[in-house]
Design a protein around this nucleic acid. Structure first.
Lengths: 158, 158
DNA sequence: TATTGTTATACTCTATAACTATA
DNA sequence: TATAGTTATAGAGTATAACAATA
């Protein structure tokens, strides 16, 4: 009788991807996100941005006029982190803090013209990065994925 | 003629979720992942684990017998980080490093009986956390999402 | 020469608490 | 009493380089 093949004969990658973790939603989400962040950060580097600063800039360049508190809630960052991000963007002349006439405690963050220009360039770079990250998906599958994630990340939350 | 309603009259959350970022795949992925990690970490805390250590333990408890290098590749962590994670798990008697007879440089990581028991408990806690994170999705939608993420995070990679 | 595991180091990200000015 | 922004600080996560043992 032939000896049992040793476990090591199966390629490591297959042993790992066929393990239960390879079907775990949270794990796949974490792994896909790590790939996405790496790709986007690389694309944003030439614009002097990273994902978090880009997220702030992209929002305010879209004329949302959020307070820092609103930015913190939406981006799931601590208000103190928003301070640091806005400080940096403001120092670079990309955003401004305006007093909120309705609440003198609050500051509304808006983009400067230079900020709007950089946001447009950065958005294009981020889109190109996304095309690489999600190359395995058809446009329809990408839209479906967007909808599913939106239900988890946005619609289901206050 | 009636004055234009001020932008501020629209609730902040709506202004933000309907901004372009609210449909950006990478952003939604990052946000969903942040929610998932927070939920899973909270659930794993009572077992003295966090997501990264749990991932290592879950793999080796599944009899994959990976080398540290294989763990690093699969988990997208630097080999030096695997050293730290395995050091901690080994100190707690949950895993062991065995010499690889085929390559005396490599060390195969395996779970101890205590590690297997903890992995089972932790897996149940993680599953419960996932049920909370993905509560907005039907089982069918969850499976669909798993398949889409798998194509991005696993199938599309070497 | 190249690779595995290891150590060391520095940098980024994240979480927490406390303070101020306003509400 | 509660909230918006700020400051400070510590911890977790991440990235990089160098080294010894082995391939």
């Amino acid at each position: 009788m032939a000896p049992m093949p040793r476990a090591r004969a199966i390629p490591a990658a297959d042993r790992l991807t066929s393990s239960p973790l390879g079907d775990d939603l949270s794990f796949l989400l974490a792994r896909a996100n790590a790939m996405s962040v790496a790709e986007v950060n690389a694309a944003l580097a030439e614009h002097g941005l990273k994902v978090r600063a880009f997220a702030v800039l992209a929002i305010v360049a879209d004329d949302v006029r959020p307070s820092q508190r609103e930015l913190a809630d939406f981006l799931r960052l601590d208000p103190s982190q928003i301070v640091v991000l806005v400080d940096d963007l403001e120092r670079r002349g990309l955003v401004e803090r305006l007093p909120d006439p309705d609440d003198r405690r609050a500051k509304v963050v808006v983009a400067t013209p230079a900020g709007e220009r950089l946001a447009a360039d950065a958005r294009a770079a981020a889109r190109a990065a996304d095309d690489r990250t999600y190359a395995a998906l058809t446009p329809a599958a990408r839209e479906h994925l967007t909808g599913l994630l939106r239900r988890i990340a946005i619609d289901d939350v206050g």
